[in-house]
């Protein structure tokens, strides 16, 4: 597939997954838990695209996440890029392209994104409106569920965006 098309398609996929995740969690749990299905898209970008393409894709997905989450603009876009960088840097340690590896990496990425968002929001928010640490449990559950769903997301992305070649892990070449 043309490399220029992968970022827009990945963004559309992220948009779809955000909607599916929101609807599914509402249907299945009534909103008691959440799932971040767009994070595996960022992880997939980190594994399957070039650095520039993936970084741009990650920031676009992050912007969409910011828009759908309703939080302060830029937060999730910044964290998406960090996740992308983390995946690029850390994916060489183990084979993250297997379903289990992808699930683990997606779970950890979601956890990292959640923790990062909590820390940054606590840093910038007034004490009275800062998110509390009691949200850590929800972040952990969200990471677990996202990790469980990640192989299915990868399966779809592999087939829809079918990479022409596989990037080698690592930030610099």
């Amino acid at each position: 597939m043309n490399a220029y098309l992968r970022v827009p398609l990945a963004s559309v996929a992220a948009l779809l997954l955000v909607a599916i995740g929101a609807s599914a969690t509402r249907q299945l749990s009534g909103g008691a838990v959440s799932v971040a299905l767009a994070v595996p898209v960022v992880v997939w970008l980190g594994l399957e695209t070039t650095v520039i393409e993936g970084a741009v894709g990650a920031v676009v997905v992050g912007v969409l996440l910011d828009a759908s989450a309703g939080g302060p603009g830029g937060l999730l876009a910044f964290l998406s890029v960090l996740v992308f960088v983390g995946v690029r840097a850390g994916a060489g340690i183990f084979d993250a392209r297997t379903p289990l590896g992808f699930a683990l990496l997606s779970g950890v990425a979601t956890l990292g994104m959640g923790l990062g968002a909590l820390l940054l929001l606590r840093y910038v928010s007034p004490a009275v409106s800062a998110p509390g640490w009691n949200l850590l449990g929800r972040v952990a559950v969200e990471s677990l569920l996202t990790g469980l769903a990640a192989p299915a997301v990868k399966w779809v992305l592999d087939r829809v965006l079918s990479p022409g070649h596989r990037e080698q892990p690592g930030l610099l070449r």
Partner: peptide, 27 residues
């Protein structure tokens, strides 16, 4: 590549830090 990554990371962070304390209406 490093420059692009830094740029796409710093710009959203800047936006976030600039507007986080004064969240406006939906864009």
């Amino acid at each position: 590549e490093v420059v692009v990554v830094v740029v796409v990371a710093v710009i959203p962070l800047g936006i976030f830090l600039a507007h986080a304390r004064h969240p406006g209406d939906r864009t």
